[in-house]
């Protein structure tokens, strides 16, 4: 029952996100757009490039979808509405999403095409830039909650959301999550204008549909994670807890899309240097500030 409810919530959010995405790029609001896109992919040929690394090529889309779903499975949407409330939940999210890199390197290497390969290796550089900005802010969140249980993290924000308690951590985590979701302006591995699709380039038909679905679910997972870690999870007046979770998640997901809409793609060199020269010192400062606040304010 819980599993069905969580998966349903995930699918509904992904659907809404797809509709909003199509709305932003075409200017037309069509609720059936995701269904039509799915059916179109179903009817198209799913090509296999010549001399591929077949194992990598086939595994990548599935792996991306699996890790996105696993990440979502440990995030609570309401008290009791979580598939597995692991004792190491916050760490698990991070661990599962590390496989996004593996999936993209596979998708890049598999087809033996130049655009894809450059895209895959570019994402490794991107991971080196964003990864610390995912884990360091989560550490500060866990310090306050005194636990890695995601439900405990939400409970710790009952009086004050983390976005207020540690705004610096929120900003860093939000940016890093966008980079992890490889959406514009961080779409370096897929970059339509630079790599003509990059890691997506050789996927067609149903494989492409799975890949696109996985990317949507990934955004939702990251938005849910942001909600749980910083926006007080299910906490909120009047509406039932699950509704608050959904509203917050969709708000975060849509703001991620909007940021990409209004910004040009970042340069890889800039991303790396800003993350390391500015982001990591700030993330360490965030840990220090949170540490002092915990000691000073009982």
């Amino acid at each position: 029952m819980t599993i069905a409810a969580v998966l349903l919530a995930l699918m509904v959010s992904a659907w809404l996100l797809a509709v909003i995405e199509a709305w932003l790029s075409t200017g037309r609001l069509r609720p059936v757009a995701p269904l039509l896109a799915g059916l179109s992919h179903l009817g198209r040929e799913s090509l296999l490039p010549r001399k591929p690394d077949r194992l990598f090529f086939e595994t990548a889309p599935v792996l991306l979808l699996v890790v996105a779903v696993l990440g979502a499975a440990v995030l609570p949407l309401a008290p009791g509405l979580v598939i597995a409330d692991l004792a190491t939940g916050a760490l698990f999210v991070n661990a599962a999403l590390a496989y996004v890199l593996v999936a993209l390197i596979m998708a890049g290497w598999g087809p033996n095409g130049a655009y894809a390969m450059v895209g895959g290796w570019r994402f490794l550089g991107q991971l080196i830039a964003y990864a610390m900005l995912i884990v360091m802010p989560i550490t500060a969140v866990a310090m306050r909650a005194e636990s890695l249980l995601n439900t405990a993290i939400v409970a710790s924000q009952a009086s004050l959301w983390n976005i207020v308690y540690q705004p610096l951590g929120f900003v860093l985590f939000f940016i890093a999550a966008m980079a992890l979701a490889f959406r514009a302006p961080f779409d370096l591995p897929t970059a339509p204008g630079e790599l003509a699709g990059g890691v997506d380039a050789e996927y067609t038909g149903m494989r492409l549909a799975v890949l696109r679905l996985a990317r949507l679910v990934l955004v939702i997972t990251l938005a849910t994670a942001t909600t749980v870690f910083y926006l007080g999870g299910w906490h909120g007046p009047l509406l039932p807890p699950w509704a608050w979770s959904l509203i917050k998640t969709l708000t975060v997901a849509v703001s991620m899309l909007l940021a990409g809409h209004y910004l040009p793609r970042i340069r890889e060199a800039d991303l790396l240097s800003w993350c390391w020269k500015l982001g990591i010192p700030l993330a360490l400062l965030n840990i220090l500030i949170v540490g002092l606040m915990i000691l000073v304010v009982p």
Binding site: L47, P49, R50, P111, Y115, M117, W121, G125, A196, L272
Partner: peptide, 27 residues
Amino acid sequence: KDVPASAGVLSRDPVWGRYHARYYGYA
């Protein structure tokens, strides 16, 4: 059809090789 798409030029050359990851300092 199965040649990796590259903007209207058929490029059958394999691309796997020693890749220059220029971010190795950060890595």
